[in-house]
Design a protein around this nucleic acid. Sequence first.
DNA 1: AGAAATTTTAATCAAATGATTAAAATCATT
DNA 2: AATGATTTTAATCATTTGATTAAAATTTCT
Lengths: 209, 209
Amino acid sequence: MKTKKEKIETVDLGAEERIKQAATRLFAKNGFAGTRTRDIAQEAGINLALLNYYFRSKEKLFDLVMLEAMQDFMRSIASIVNNKDMSLEVKLENLVQNYFQLFLVQPDLPLFVMNELRTNPKRLESHLGIKKVIVGSHFFEQIKKRTPKKVNPFQFLMNTMALTVFPFLAAPMLKIIGDMDESAYLQILEERKKKIPQWILAQLLTAKS
Amino acid sequence: MKTKKEKIETVDLGAEERIKQAATRLFAKNGFAGTRTRDIAQEAGINLALLNYYFRSKEKLFDLVMLEAMQDFMRSIASIVNNKDMSLEVKLENLVQNYFQLFLVQPDLPLFVMNELRTNPKRLESHLGIKKVIVGSHFFEQIKKRTPKKVNPFQFLMNTMALTVFPFLAAPMLKIIGDMDESAYLQILEERKKKIPQWILAQLLTAKS
DNA sequence: AGAAATTTTAATCAAATGATTAAAATCATT
DNA sequence: AATGATTTTAATCATTTGATTAAAATTTCT
């Protein structure tokens, strides 16, 4: 029945889980259309038919993998963003660090999500309550209080995300432009991790009109 | 021979040009793998075989279209970035306006370019002299002069691009998060067009350590 | 161990897709 | 109009690719 085997967890994750992980990697790297089910099967070390046995179709597998990736992401920021015992300063630091931690491990994730949202914007709206997660958050209220009049506080939210996410989205280009290798670029990212909260706060203070 | 017909330029661009334009649109929208040659042919209003007659293969067509898109883009910013009679302030304004103008017409372009560069970073390096265009530019020298010591001036370049490009890359997501329709989002973008140069300059002044 | 359920595989199908070919249509030059 | 070059089309091919099927292997339960 549903007792499962539970072998050595670290090595043998079971076929189903291995397929999901392989799919996540490949979809993120090559997109939906650019990923063949055979590639997923090979990367997972299983037979092609097994993929359809577990997930019915490529599209269903994609939807599932996408949903879980987004949920993980949302959960991770929701807990920070809605903490009412954290100052805006600390919250900014935590948010940025959280982004960096996630994207350093999965560098393809942000571009993958952006792509999926462009081709299928409905999914974000329906599958996740992202609207309330951000704009209805304590974090957003804190920004509002600090934002000078006549400037839409949403701008500062955009700036925070832009400064944080863009260096990952555009990493290949930026490395070339700056003539940097991987380690040099990582150093730049480390510097940003500290500076971004300062930059954002400086904007909140110095913005005029 | 090579006299060509030159009918009414506005309506009939000729098959070759129509294919290129259709390909640009569709590749940008759906990526390489997600675009079928049949779709390009249909969008261009020509027979499928004609595509291969003019461009030999889907991949050749893609390479060509990609190259021209990037060259157009590079040309447009190179002229601004290397103008030695422009203050940093004015240059920032012009750069941002140039980005906005381009991306408002072709909203899919930035994501398309990011994608292509992730899957094929070599192309940027070989096909375009992007390295010198940016880092060797007069603009970059101006930033260097203004950057406080101990902060890598490249960070400010990244910030400029991030604040400018990200709102286009992430437009679908941001519209949902902010619960905005197209026109409301365009208004936000207009506000940014004015504010981004101010924000960048504020960073240059207020950055400490 | 033996029966039943579950998991995995090899073989194959059908549709989609990039590409080619040979013929037809159009255009340019005489 | 006739000729030759160029452009466009319809029909078709070969491969790729998502999916299915029926059988084999493995696990679970008695």
